[in-house]
């Protein structure tokens, strides 16, 4: 069965508090924090970007389980902040882990769901018997214009998944997607920051697609929300995933482990991959995980995942840092230093 062979996550060390951003832009910190359910967000170091996150997450995955890099025949990196507009991040990862040159690679972009789109592609290649292993990564140094609502949440981090069918630690039983052309959030070529359609991103964007894909998955699998131990939804803020979960019939208990946004912010393509990594950090054999991502523009990918005995036998989770440990190792920046970190000050 096709599934996750190993996984790794990366979250940069720096944080900024939402109240610090609010202080600079004259926002009401209590109202914003309450409204978004986000207290702080992860910020990259000067010398970090989507490629370094992708490499660190992948190396962490390969530390947890030995996989011959020469057997990895495909790498997909999903992000909306690839360091280059033209020149793939995925080959940088390939070089860094020693998987080149006999491999295929490409960069994906589908707003916040490019990482899960990569997992689907990897599943297809492995499932079709074209290769033993493929890697899918979701990572972002999310952009939000200074002073824009997005700036309170746009964060940094990512996670990597090695997909294969050789003793997976978690079997992916099924995946399905729900996609339409919906202009709720976009960034034009050459623009520094994305634009968004304000409240339009809620009902016709996030909820329509997340609920659409999730219901399709439950119908396809003949399952109900209570069959799952964990559920992870895309989390641009804390409110949206909680609301979607409630509408679908998932409980707070099922979503809390994978709901990182209040301490992490929105890592865009990294969000659902990191949420799933947090669940895998603590999951036991037999646990069932329900996943639904969301990417503006718009689409959602749903996954039905079951953890196997291999999570104990075939992988040493302690050899890579857990999501929780990385969230705990935080250094706080003020807005001025954060602006320098994010390159918002042009020199």
């Amino acid at each position: 069965m096709v599934g996750i062979i190993t996984y790794g996550a990366y979250i940069p060390r720096y944080r900024i508090k939402v109240e610090e951003i609010a202080r600079v832009w004259g926002g009401n910190a209590a109202e914003i924090t309450g409204g978004l359910g986000v207290i702080e967000k992860a910020v990259p170091d000067y010398d970090e970007d989507t490629a370094t996150f992708a490499v660190e997450a992948t190396r962490s995955a390969l530390c947890r389980r030995i996989v011959d890099p020469k057997e990895i025949k495909a790498i997909y990196v999903g992000s909306e902040s690839h360091p280059y507009a033209v020149k793939p991040t995925s080959v940088t990862v390939g070089e860094a882990i020693g998987a080149t040159p006999v491999m295929t690679a490409a960069d994906y972009e589908f707003a916040c769901k490019a990482g899960t789109a990569g997992i689907q592609t990897a599943m297809g290649l492995v499932g079709a018997g074209m290769m033993n292993y493929a890697i899918a990564i979701g990572a972002d140094t999310a952009q939000g214009a200074p002073g824009d609502a997005l700036e309170y949440t746009a964060a940094a981090g990512g996670a990597a998944y090695v997909i294969g069918n050789d003793d997976p630690i978690a079997v992916i039983s099924h995946t399905c997607s729900f996609s339409t052309d919906t202009p709720d959030f976009w960034r034009r070529e050459g623009a520094d920051y994305p634009r968004h359609g304000g409240r339009f991103s809620g009902e016709p964007g996030y909820f329509k697609h997340v609920i659409g894909a999730a219901k399709m998955m439950l119908a396809d699998m003949g399952t109900k929300p209570s069959d799952y131990d964990y559920a992870v939804f895309h989390q641009p803020n804390a409110k949206f995933p909680q609301k979607a979960a409630a509408r679908l019939g998932f409980s707070q208990d099922q979503i809390k482990t994978g709901l990182l946004v209040s301490r992490l912010g929105n890592t865009y393509s990294g969000a659902v991959p990191l949420g799933l990594a947090a669940v895998l950090d603590v999951a036991k054999p037999g646990d069932k995980i329900f996943i639904t991502s969301y990417g503006s523009g718009s689409g959602s990918d749903a996954f039905d995942i079951t953890v196997t005995d291999a999570i104990h036998d075939k992988i040493d989770r302690s050899r890579g840092p857990t999501v929780d440990a990385m969230l705990a190792d935080a250094k706080y920046l003020d807005y001025a230093v954060y602006a320098r970190h994010k390159g918002k000050i042009k020199t």
């Binding site: 170091d45 010398d47 970007d49 370094t52 490499v55 190396r59 360091p83 280059y84």
Partner: peptide, 20 residues
């Protein structure tokens, strides 16, 4: 060791990655 950006050739040039 960690994987980081060593330097960026301005805003339009090559980005060099390596070990720190």
């Amino acid at each position: 060791s960690v994987f980081r950006v060593l330097d960026r050739e301005g805003t339009e040039g090559i980005i060099h990655y390596g070990t720190k």
